[in-house]
Simulated scan of single mutants.
Amino acid sequence: MQIEPSRPDEEVVIEKLRDDPEFVAGYLNALLEDGDQEDLMLAMRRMAKAYSGVPQLAEQAEHNAELLYRMLSTKGNPELRNLRALLKAMGKRLVVQPIARQA
């Protein structure tokens, strides 16, 4: 019996972000609902790695790479238009859904 070597959690998350659109949607929606700015920036950095890296992603989002690195830093605070451009370059978008009212 051959045992596969374990991989760091970070690698697994990045692989799922790259390969599983439903995982991406659930991951980001959970962060938007319950996370904070720092959590969201970590998720966006992971997604940038999953989607070909910052330089290529910056080109697709029509931003320069330095701006994108700053935006995704631990102290990053992207404007909505920049976040939307970044998500669009990854084939994603922000949406709003109603919360079910409790009786």
Rank of each mutant, 00 (worst) to 15 (best):
L32K: 04
N29P: 00
I99S: 03
P8L: 08
K16C: 00
G91R: 10
G91D: 03
K92S: 03
G76V: 07
L86Q: 06
A25K: 15
F23L: 07
L40G: 09
M1A: 12
Q37N: 06
N77G: 04
L31N: 09
G26R: 15
P55D: 04
D19R: 13
E79A: 10
V96K: 11
K92I: 03
L94M: 07
M41S: 12
L17N: 02
L67H: 13
D9W: 06
G91A: 08
R70W: 08
L40H: 05
G26D: 14
R93W: 01
P78F: 03
E62A: 09
Y27W: 11
R7Q: 14
E10F: 10
S73H: 04
L72W: 06
L67A: 10
N82Y: 12
F23G: 04
L32F: 15
L80K: 11
L72S: 05
N77F: 06
P8F: 10
D34M: 12
L87V: 07
M71E: 08
D19I: 00
K49L: 11
F23Q: 04
A65H: 05
R101N: 05
M44H: 14
L32P: 01
K88T: 10
D20G: 02
Q102F: 10
N29G: 04
L86V: 15
M47A: 14
L17S: 06
V24H: 03
V24P: 01
P21T: 06
L80I: 11
P8V: 10
G26Y: 04
L87T: 08
V13W: 02
A103H: 07
A89P: 03
Q37L: 10
K16H: 04
M47N: 08
I14S: 07
Y27K: 05
D34A: 13
V54N: 02
S6D: 12
A65V: 01
E4F: 12
L86D: 05
E15K: 14
A48D: 02
H63D: 01
E10T: 07
D9C: 01
L86I: 15
I14E: 06
L86A: 13
E22Y: 13
E11C: 03
L72D: 02
R45C: 00
D9T: 12
R45S: 13
M71S: 15
A103W: 05
E10N: 03
D39E: 13
Y51D: 01
A100F: 00
G53C: 03
E79P: 00
